[in-house]
Nucleic acid binder design. Structure first.
Length: 581
RNA sequence: GCCCUUGUAGCUCAGUGGAUAGAGCGACCGCCUCCUAAGCGGUAGGUCACAGGUUCGAUUCCUGUCUUGGGCGCCA
């Protein structure tokens, strides 16, 4: 046995390179080896001859024949033949395939892990305004972001998971004033609750908490509150101006105490959000406060820097960034006429800060409705002489929730939406995470609650988990020590299914690498379903606990290797791998 | 109107510059005396929206048309 049985693919590439050097000296080409879908095309196939056809001005099949003729001999290679338009199909020795079983058992949880890669990578996701419970859309972003971060880390990157807390904007003020209005209401102060304020019951809960803790300390008569507030209805009424008036009145009447209400609402919602995500298996290394960008002067600094570089101009009393000079379709305001910075200004500061923290690769995961925002952020980075190419924005499309055929209408403000927590309770964390990943993140997803519930037994997640549980069950009946299987003689693994299964396991590291490169955790989910299918088919076709000791040991080793790979894959998706179902 | 996105089996969706385009669900026919039937085998089902172009080769890349959804605030 060679000491490098795992490198069969590399080995074949080396053979091809040698053949190429002999057939066409001085010619270079990327050696591509793929695993054909069709078993009759061998274990690996190369299109090298077709790639060379143009440069050598020769028929691809002829080139292929010469390459095969010049291929060095190898004990791992049983057969190399020309097929189709000029493919070279390789059939490798069974031992070259089954050797992966020993490798999987030896590496365990680390099987499939990529070599450490240079640089520091950040994945920022969810980043929902802490103005109410997370909903099913956030659940998708969370599932995608968490799995992507795990996948990138497993592929060898140093990864930091970050949540950007929008604790500085108008939305937080609206939440705080909503809470205060509910609080006043509980004392009988009659102020019509604005339709564009936060309607959810959790706002009343927070109002009650404030009242329980501090009684009437924040109480002001309705007349005083409404004194200077623009009307909410009637001729020329503007409900946004009305709401802003209420916020101004609250700040005026409450003075320093406004901050208590504001802070209470923020910390309550953030704590709830955090707990929700933790239960969901989504963890963050850093919760980054938008307000801190103001407190440290970072926002002012970013705007000043743009100004210094001559990228800003005044118009209509506002300060504009000339983003059109960097590919945006129109210029954008960074500082409003009223002197307040826009959200965009703090976002420029935030992204600058990301670079200052040393991240060499930044992945932002945004809702798809923010796609028009990309050119201006990248434009700002370019204007600051930062590497805009280092920023990848992954857009997560909307989730439409259905109950049967009926679409559930959702509105954050109106408080009429299904929360992530409710979804998790109905469907379960595992099914929830897996279901979200069965659709590419940049495609919209229809999530049918009734279907997810009623078909929970048919959900693909159980199909994959079941394969894992089955192996556990067999091992329990066998009663031996699974760790002893690591050195098992694998020669008895000779059936077509067994060799195919081993080849599948060998492809796991390549799949991981590709999925990480493409930021596509969904392909891990699809791949695992395929692996489970191959395992179930084998399990049904062959008995594992046979009388022949050598045969039994070898099959158990293969089964344990399958279990390990399923476990490694599910871990990346945040899905549990149960021992029994 | 401009920008982005989408079109693949009855339904929901993967996939790829390569060979005869796949899976799940649904339909139909089978498989438990046997390690978990939350499983397996089989059958049926396709002009990869349409038309051009690039290429040895296009469902994949480019252009146009039609089509799905979204975005175009001194909101976040």
């Amino acid at each position: 046995m060679s000491s490098q049985p795992l490198e069969i693919k590399t080995h074949l590439a080396d053979l091809l390179r040698a053949a190429l050097a002999s057939v066409a000296p001085g010619t270079t080409a990327e050696i591509q080896l793929e695993r054909p879908r069709d078993a009759s095309h061998g274990d690996f196939a190369s299109n090298l001859a077709m790639q060379l056809a143009r440069a050598l001005k020769e028929n691809p099949r002829k080139i292929a024949e010469r390459l095969v003729h010049e291929l060095p001999r190898s004990p791992w290679l049983l057969k190399a033949e020309v097929a189709g338009a000029g493919f070279i199909n390789f059939t490798v020795a069974p031992a070259a395939k089954t050797a992966v079983v020993a490798a999987v058992l030896a590496k365990g949880d680390d099987y499939g892990r990529g070599a450490q890669k240079p640089g520091k990578l950040q994945v920022e996701f969810v980043s929902a305004n802490p103005t109410g419970p997370l909903h099913v859309g956030h659940g998708r972003g969370a599932a995608y972001g968490a799995s992507l971060a795990s996948l990138l880390a497993f592929a060898g990157h140093e990864v930091c998971r970050e949540y950007y807390v929008n604790d500085a904007g108008r939305q937080m003020d609206i939440l705080a004033v909503s809470t205060w209005l509910r609080y006043l209401d509980s004392f009988g102060e009659k102020i019509p609750f604005p339709p564009n304020a936060y309607q959810g019951d959790y706002v009343r809960d927070m109002a009650q908490q404030v009242r329980d803790a501090h009684g009437d300390r924040y109480l002001h008569p309705a007349a005083a509150v409404l004194a200077c507030v623009p009307p909410a209805d009637g001729e020329g009424a503007d409900i946004e101006a009305h709401l802003d008036g209420l916020i101004a009145a609250a700040k005026d009447l409450l003075g320093e105490e406004w901050h208590y209400i504001h802070q209470h609402a923020l910390s309550e919602q953030l704590a709830d959000c955090r707990a929700d995500l933790e239960e969901y298996g989504v963890h963050f290394d850093c919760w980054f406060s938008e307000r801190s960008l103001y407190d440290t002067g970072m926002v002012a600094k970013a705007v000043a820097e743009l100004e210094k570089r001559g990228h800003l101009y005044m118009q209509d009393g506002a300060k504009w960034f000339r983003s059109t000079a960097f590919g945006d379709e129109k210029d954008r305001v960074v500082q409003r006429e009223n002197g307040l910075y826009t959200y965009f200004a703090s976002d420029i500061a935030y992204h600058w800060n990301k670079f200052e923290r040393g991240f060499t690769r930044i992945v932002d995961i945004w809702g798809a409705d923010h796609h028009g925002y990309i050119p201006r952020v990248k434009g700002a980075l370019k204007a600051l002489d930062l590497d805009a190419e280092a920023l990848d924005v992954a857009l997560v499309q909307f989730v439409s929730l259905f109950r049967g055929t009926e679409k559930v209408s959702m509105s954050t403000r109106a408080g009429s939406y299904v929360t992530l927590r409710e979804l998790r309770q109905e469907v379960g964390n595992d099914a929830c995470r897996f279901f979200y990943l069965l659709r590419k993140q940049d495609q919209s997803l229809d999530f049918d609650l009734d279907l997810a519930k009623s078909q929970s037994n048919d959900n693909p997640v159980y199909y994959v988990q079941y394969a894992h549980a089955r192996v556990c069950s067999v091992l329990a009946q066998w009663g031996g020590d699974a760790t002893t299987l690591a050195t098992t003689d694998l020669a008895p693994l000779a059936s077509e299914r067994e060799l195919a299964l081993a080849a599948k396991l060998a492809a796991f590291p390549e799949m991981i690498e590709g999925a990480a490169r493409d930021h596509a955790p969904h392909s891990v989910a699809f791949w695992l379903r395929d692996l489970a299918a191959e395992f179930h088919a084998w399990y049904n076709a062959e008995r594992l606990l046979v009388d022949d000791a050598a045969q039994k040991q070898a099959r158990l080793a293969l089964a344990v290797a399958v279990r390990q790979v399923i476990r490694n894959g599910l871990r990346l998706l945040g899905v549990s791998a149960p021992d029994a179902m």
